[in-house]
């Protein structure tokens, strides 16, 4: 690999390697491993590399990080994914392969406004719109854990962008303001002035407020049950059998 002439010697560079050891002929598994190495060509200290979400967070649900795509390729960490799944990578059908956009859309799937309106969603012609996701789609903290120690864990609520927010809200046109309260946005510079991290109210414009999971709302008073009567509670009777 030869870098293009004039490459930025002051920029942080990352080399990634991934590999497998195929032991299936011995009735064993494919062992997978990957690793990244950060450096600056001029010898200075690398800047913070992308670390919004740690691999261990995905592993809560995807224990071996083996996905339908790249299965058995040795790509098993988020640090590896983001090297290729960057904002300049696209599927030929126009779907962004950027890690945030792609991950959001895959887990939103059937709830994407475009899919609700009848459009298809997938990559390389494969349908990803019917995946069954196991968590609440408003619950950002499922992936954006603040306790896993990711250096940029707060970016999901401090770096609102048209790409990241628009990936789930795909009926919003920031160019025209359609489905955005008629407020066109030509850059990402103003988002945080209205979409603050947390506002005064739940379900407000703030990023936490807007994504309040209804069942976790602090406004829920809690449900109280009162036992009004017990049927068939006499000795020798079975209170579970409902007398019709």
């Amino acid at each position: 690999m030869v870098l293009p002439s004039g490459f930025d010697r002051t920029a942080t560079h990352t080399v990634g390697v991934f590999g497998i050891r195929d032991l299936r002929e011995f009735v064993l598994n494919i062992d997978e491993a990957d690793a990244v190495f950060h450096f600056v060509p001029d010898g200075s200290k690398p800047q913070q590399t992308p670390e919004v979400i740690k691999t261990q967070t995905c592993r809560k649900c995807h224990d071996n990080m083996r996905f339908d795509t790249h299965t058995g390729s040795g790509r098993i960490s988020v640090e590896m994914c983001v090297l290729c799944h960057n904002p300049k990578s696209f599927d030929p059908n126009g779907e962004s392969l950027d890690m945030g956009v792609m991950t959001h859309r895959i887990h939103m799937n059937s709830s994407l406004p475009s899919v609700v309106a009848g459009a298809k969603f997938g990559y390389r012609g494969k349908d990803y719109s019917k995946i069954l996701y196991s968590a609440n789609k408003r619950d950002c903290a499922v992936c954006h854990e603040t306790t896993a120690g990711a250096a940029q864990a707060d970016f999901f609520e401090t770096k609102a962008t048209r790409a990241a927010c628009g990936s789930c809200h795909d009926n919003v046109s920031f160019a025209t303001g359609e489905n955005h309260a008629n407020l066109p946005q030509v850059s990402d510079s103003q988002c945080a002035t209205c979409h603050t991290v947390q506002g005064e109210l739940e379900f407000d414009l703030s990023i936490r407020g807007a994504h309040t999971v209804a069942t976790k709302s602090r406004e829920l008073p809690g449900t109280t049950f009162e036992i009004l009567d017990v049927n068939d509670g006499a000795p020798g009777r079975n209170p579970l059998s409902l007398s019709a």
């Binding site: 990352t14 800047q47 904002p87 030929p92």
Partner: peptide, 30 residues
């Protein structure tokens, strides 16, 4: 093996190694 860098003032990678993929059905290239 792959190598990428973070452009000045950026937080996301750009890759030195890219390829063009073509959609068999539409001929679109990405």
């Amino acid at each position: 093996m792959l190598i990428a860098y973070i452009p000045r003032n950026g937080t996301k990678y750009e890759s030195y190694i890219t390829r063009n993929a073509t959609d068999a059905a539409t001929g679109e290239v990405a």
